[in-house]
Design a protein around this nucleic acid. Structure first.
Length: 209
DNA sequence: CATTTGATAACG
DNA sequence: GTTATCAAATGT
């Protein structure tokens, strides 16, 4: 299977995000090769998006990479404990990215279980910080190219549009009106999605769109 | 449901 | 230099 061409990433986050569903994210480290199918993503649309780290064109040392051309890795640590993985998309100076929220385990499950210190399959990659730990993604991956050999994304099964669900993004209460934007995309019915949205909208989280 | 935890940003 | 804040996960 071939790696996705860089041109794939150099479009808007809202185009790329749903198309990443079903693709395979692969890492190769000293411990071996691990991979998983992307089943849940969120789009962050840069300067117009209050939930984005690059809202209003904010630049910091950490967000600098998002201003580069699409096809690179943006990782950052959150809550001191966790690492989150994003794909930089769009062109230079258009700071958009796609946040990967959940994978379905593929190759190297034993390696992932060892890294995660669990023998369950379900909790292995079903959450943004879980999948980074399972695939061995660390801060050192910051800025890495997805055209390289350490981390990359390959074609998988393409997901028919009727299997793609949409909902509001998760845990961005600080983002005001943007909380309501349906920028989270996921594969309907997939058992490896991350935790359901919080209380409140009980009937309308996963099977709605 | 509460607690954990540290890198990062935004201040002085 | 200090403080507040977070695209979460875990364990009870």
């Amino acid at each position: 299977m071939d790696k996705l061409p860089l041109a794939f990433y150099q479009r808007s986050a809202l185009e790329v995000a749903p198309q990443l569903l079903g693709k395979i994210l692969v890492t190769e480290t000293g411990e071996g090769k691990t991979s998983g199918k992307i089943v849940e993503v969120e789009a962050y649309t840069g300067i117009n998006d209050p939930a984005s780290h690059t809202y209003k064109g904010k630049r910091t040392p950490r967000t600098e990479i998002i201003y580069q051309e699409g096809g690179r890795v943006y990782v950052y640590s959150i809550y001191g404990i966790h690492i989150c993985f994003n794909v930089v998309v769009n062109k230079k100076d258009i700071p958009e990215c796609v946040f990967i929220r959940a994978l379905q385990p593929g190759e190297g499950i034993e390696i992932m279980q060892k890294r995660r210190k669990t023998d369950s399959l379900k909790g292995l990659t079903s959450g943004p910080a879980r999948l980074t730990q399972a695939l061995g993604i660390e801060m050192g991956f910051y800025g890495e190219s997805l055209a390289g050999d350490r981390i990359y994304i390959v074609e998988g099964n393409s997901i028919p549009v009727e299997k793609v669900g949409r909902s509001a993004r998760v845990n961005i209460d600080y983002a005001g009106e943007a909380k309501a934007w349906l920028y989270r995309y996921y594969i309907l019915g997939n058992p490896f999605l991350s935790a359901a949205p919080r209380s409140g909208s009980r009937s309308s989280s996963y099977h709605n769109y």
